[in-house]
Design a protein around this nucleic acid. Structure first.
Lengths: 168, 168
DNA sequence: GGTTCATATGTAAGTCTTTACATGTCAAGT
DNA sequence: ACTTGACATGTAAAGACTTACATATGAACC
């Protein structure tokens, strides 16, 4: 379901696009929000078109297909955004490592937390130089700030945890 | 793979336990870290026992089965924790709503962000009165702090975003 | 003319996860 | 004796996601 919403949202933000275009957007700005590869996107677009959420049009000799959001698609997107209580299914390997940290001895734990911190630092840098979606600076702005806030929180946790591990 | 690790970790933290016990732990302390229902846990335990990671023992008339972590299980758990670069597959409906917020008009967006904030606030309360895993206060301590830090960051984002939406 | 790379789309197999169905025990309260 | 609720385990089908395989065009470079 959420994949549908993400695709509808991108088509609303960017206008008509091909599956390939959408896959590129997932690799870019959406990557820190939701992830999907082209093998998941292509069949889903076909189903969405069959369900009347999208209009399709073939273009060029290369078999490129352009999808446009239909009224029913706009409606479902809007309703989901306005009404949906977001599900909170957490599945974070980082949090799992944090949970199980006491299994490691102190120096191994320090190394693991250092890794988490380095990763978060890199993510922070990535987020800072993220291009806007389809030259549309509105989109992704709020998600970017949320990502920055949560990533900074992770770095602070790592610093606090490293301090605790080193002084014990 | 991560489900295996979570199960191994719980068995290491708590000692011998049944599938039912482990499912309860997922509903409790692990819930903010990783999620799994009993329908996923029972078959996985069977596979893990078949792979030599766990020892099984039947107990009582009620068909209760007690799993104990085997040496091979301890080894794999330790290796994963010490060596694994945590995967960062983000799939957050909250972040997706944040991403697509500009599709809503201002008052709808405010309502959506209020919902996110209320949810985070509740989560914060949940985290604060979480019981320790198997009366073992070491476990979950670091994950709890990570969860608190990230949840506080989400609330700060909501406040910042509400302010931005209301003054525009 | 040939190579290489980005473009562009798909299928298939396998894994992970959710939802729905199904069964039976034990303890406590009425 | 009966009911209710927590305990306890499972299967099956469907849906979501990943990984590997497969194909073909157009543009740029050498």
């Amino acid at each position: 379901m959420s994949l549908r919403i993400a695709l509808l949202g991108l088509l609303a933000a960017k206008g008509p696009a091909s599956g390939y275009d959408l896959a590129k957007l997932f690799e870019g700005s959406l990557n820190h929000v939701w992830q999907a590869g082209h093998t998941q996107i292509y069949p889903e677009l076909v189903r969405m078109a069959a369900d009347g959420l999208l209009a399709v049009e073939a273009e060029g000799a290369r078999g490129r297909k352009i999808y446009t959001i239909a009224d029913e698609g706009s409606r479902q997107l809007h309703d989901w955004l306005a009404d949906r209580e977001p599900a909170v299914t957490v599945r974070s390997e980082t949090a799992l490592q944090a949970f199980l940290l006491p299994i490691l001895d102190t120096d191994e734990a320090i190394a693991a937390v250092e890794r988490v911190k380095a990763r978060a630092q890199k993510r922070l840098d990535d987020l800072k130089c993220l291009p806007p979606v389809a030259d549309n600076p509105k989109f992704g702005k709020y998600a970017l700030r949320l990502g920055l806030a949560q990533t900074r929180a992770t770095i602070e946790w790592a610093d606090e945890t490293l301090h605790a591990l080193r002084t014990k």
